[in-house]
Design a protein around this nucleic acid. Structure first.
Length: 238
DNA sequence: AACTAATACAACCGCATTCGA
DNA sequence: GTCGAATGCGGTTGTATTAGT
C-alpha cells in the first residue's frame, strides 16, 4: 500500500487558507477528517496544532504584557509545568506560547544567576521568588489585556485579505474587541474563584480555554452552534 | 557592514487520555 | 469491558528575527 506523502515544516499561506476554510466548514474537531477533505498533505495532528497555535482567530499576537507575565509567574508557581492549565487562565494565549515564554525566561534567569554566582535552587521556586519583586513594581493591574502597544498584527499580509473574506473576518474582529474588555482584575478574580471551587469540591475546574467564551458574537461560535444543533454532518464522515 | 548571541516563535514527536464502536 | 482512533499535552528542536559587538 502506498502511503501518501505527509508534508512537514512551515505552513504556506495557501495551506493556512485551506485549513481556515475547512475548519469554518466543519468545525475544529475531527482533524484527521479535516486533513483529508481539505486536500492538505498534512497530518490531522499538524492541522490541529496549526489551528490551535496560530490560525485560531481568538489568539492574541505579540509579546506578553507585564500583567500576563506576572500572571504566568504566579500560575506557574501554583501549577508547575501544566501549560494548558495556565493557558486556560490567559485568554488568547496558547500553552505553546506560554511554554516558550517560560523556557526563554528560565534560561535567562539561569544565566543571570550563574553570572551572579548564586546557587540555583529550582526553576519554579527561583522564578516565583523573583516574581513577587517584579510584580510589586507594576501598577497597571486594571489595564485590559490585548491593549498592548505592540503593533504586530496577525493579518498583516496582503494575501490574507482573502483569508479574512473566507473566514468572515469582520465578525472575528468584533469578538476580539469583546475579549479586550476582559481585564486583568477579572482574570485574577477568576483564578481565585476557580481555585476556591477546586479546593472546596476537590474537583479540577476546567478553565474556559475556548476563546469563543470571550467572543459571544463571533462567527466561529455561530458556526459551532450551527453545526452542533442544526445539521447532521455525519454523512461526511462516512 | 559583518558576525555572533540572544530571543521569539513555529512545529514536531512521543506519550497519555478520552471517546466511540 | 476492550480496543483502536482521535485528541490533548508537555518536552524538545529548528528557524527567523533582533540586538549587541
Amino acid at each position: 500500500m502506498v502511503q501518501e506523502e505527509i508534508r512537514k515544516g512551515p505552513w504556506t499561506e495557501q495551506e493556512d487558507l485551506q485549513l481556515v476554510f475547512y475548519v469554518k466548514m466543519f468545525g475544529d474537531r475531527r482533524w484527521d477528517f479535516l486533513a483529508k477533505v481539505s486536500g492538505l498533505k498534512r497530518s490531522g495532528k499538524s492541522c490541529r496544532l496549526r489551528w490551535v497555535n496560530y490560525l485560531n482567530p481568538g489568539l492574541k499576537r505579540g509579546r506578553m504584557t507585564p500583567q500576563e507575565e506576572r500572571l504566568v509567574l504566579q500560575l506557574h508557581s501554583k501549577y508547575g509545568n501544566r501549560w494548558s492549565k495556565i493557558a486556560g487562565k490567559l485568554p488568547g494565549r496558547t500553552d505553546n506560547e506560554i511554554k516558550n515564554y517560560w523556557r526563554t525566561h528560565m534560561r535567562k534567569q539561569a544565566q543571570d544567576q550563574k553570572k551572579n554566582n548564586k546557587a540555583f535552587i529550582s526553576p519554579s521556586s527561583s522564578f516565583s521568588n523573583c516574581s513577587s519583586s517584579s510584580a510589586n513594581s507594576l501598577t497597571v493591574d486594571s489595564m485590559p489585556i490585548g491593549t498592548e502597544q505592540n503593533e504586530t498584527n496577525f493579518y498583516n499580509n496582503d494575501g490574507l485579505e482573502l483569508l479574512k473574506q473566507v473566514a468572515g473576518e469582520n465578525k472575528i474582529y468584533e469578538g476580539e474587541q469583546n475579549m479586550m474588555i476582559y481585564s486583568m482584575d477579572e482574570i485574577w478574580k477568576e483564578v481565585e474563584s476557580s481555585e476556591e471551587i477546586e479546593t472546596r469540591n476537590n474537583v479540577p475546574v476546567m478553565a474556559s480555554t475556548n476563546t469563543w467564551d470571550y467572543c459571544p458574537d463571533s462567527l466561529w461560535m455561530t458556526d459551532h452552534y450551527y453545526f452542533d444543533n442544526n445539521q447532521d454532518f455525519s454523512f461526511f464522515t462516512g
